[in-house]
Design a protein around this nucleic acid. Structure first.
Lengths: 150, 150
DNA sequence: TCCGAAAGTTAGCCTAGGCTAAGAAGTGTG
DNA sequence: CACACTTCTTAGCCTAGGCTAACTTTCGGA
């Protein structure tokens, strides 16, 4: 019997590279998701989404918001008229709805496994962008099972 | 009794801004954590960490690795001599150990809640950088409870 | 030993996402 | 209705993190 504890071997390089690549892809879409989610929330709560409110809630300057909104517009998620409020395109609304659903699910899941609401809200902000469909389904199953068990 | 479903009000702007700011902070440290974790793995597995292997495993060009390593060195995480392999400083080793522990914990947790190993590995790559200490402790408690329950 | 292949670096480019400062556009009130 | 205030945009700057192409250094084998 071997006594030397074999260190877990590294995964194949290609697999690892693919994971990091998907990771970078998720990072790229995260900002867009956060913005459209916030814009949708503002439209719902205030009836309008103004750059100044986005800046305040994102904790960035208005100039940054203008630049980011430009990218969202270029990517077909948002429609703007100069000096007017923001509106979501169909694609933007879809993304916002999906992002919001994911966000809520992650928050509920984190609370269910023992996190306090405030921390759950904070952590969900980051985790929601990195949970795959399979993971979200697992979270849902977990919540359903817990609910069934009482 | 009210029939209109009150939409959940937006959180205070300052709270939301603080969450996004912490989020951006986590994003900034994520690359460093991934690199030192990988360097530590390579040192353990191969006895050395070479830029060409990091490039292959991260799925980026060697030029990108050189630039990133430069930042890690500037930040006191890595030591290099030109055209020689990489070494971790004490700070780098600490960060790598913490990152690896977090990574493993998140993988085990995701598997415990029903994810397959491959997806767990993929999702952990993103989630590990965004789970707070409180969340990691919750994950640990969950694993411990499940183990106790059998 | 030397020389070609592999590894590492440098130069120059790009995008995303931050910032400040300054100016333009819209709005509300005396 | 005019002027001050707020909002939005523009200009110019920065860092991180990507890329390719070209160059330098190292290393191993004939």
């Amino acid at each position: 019997m071997r006594r030397t504890l074999a260190p877990r071997p590294l995964p194949p390089a290609e697999d690892q590279a693919a994971r990091f690549a998907r990771q970078r892809e998720a990072d790229r879409t995260a900002t867009a998701e956060d913005y459209v989610e916030l814009i949708a929330d503002l439209l719902r709560a205030d009836g309008e989404a103004r750059a100044v409110d986005i800046a305040r809630r994102m904790g960035v300057s208005q100039a940054t918001v203008t630049a980011t909104i430009g990218r969202l517009q270029r990517d077909g998620l948002v429609e703007t008229k100069p000096y007017r409020g923001l509106f979501l395109t169909d694609a933007g609304r879809d993304m916002a709805a999906a992002a919001k659903a994911r966000h809520e699910l992650v928050v509920q899941f984190l609370i269910a496994v023992g996190l306090d609401a405030e921390t759950a809200e904070q952590d969900a902000e980051g985790i929601e962008h990195h949970a795959s469909e399979a993971a979200l389904q697992a979270f849902e199953r977990f919540l359903a099972a817990r609910k069934a068990a009482g």
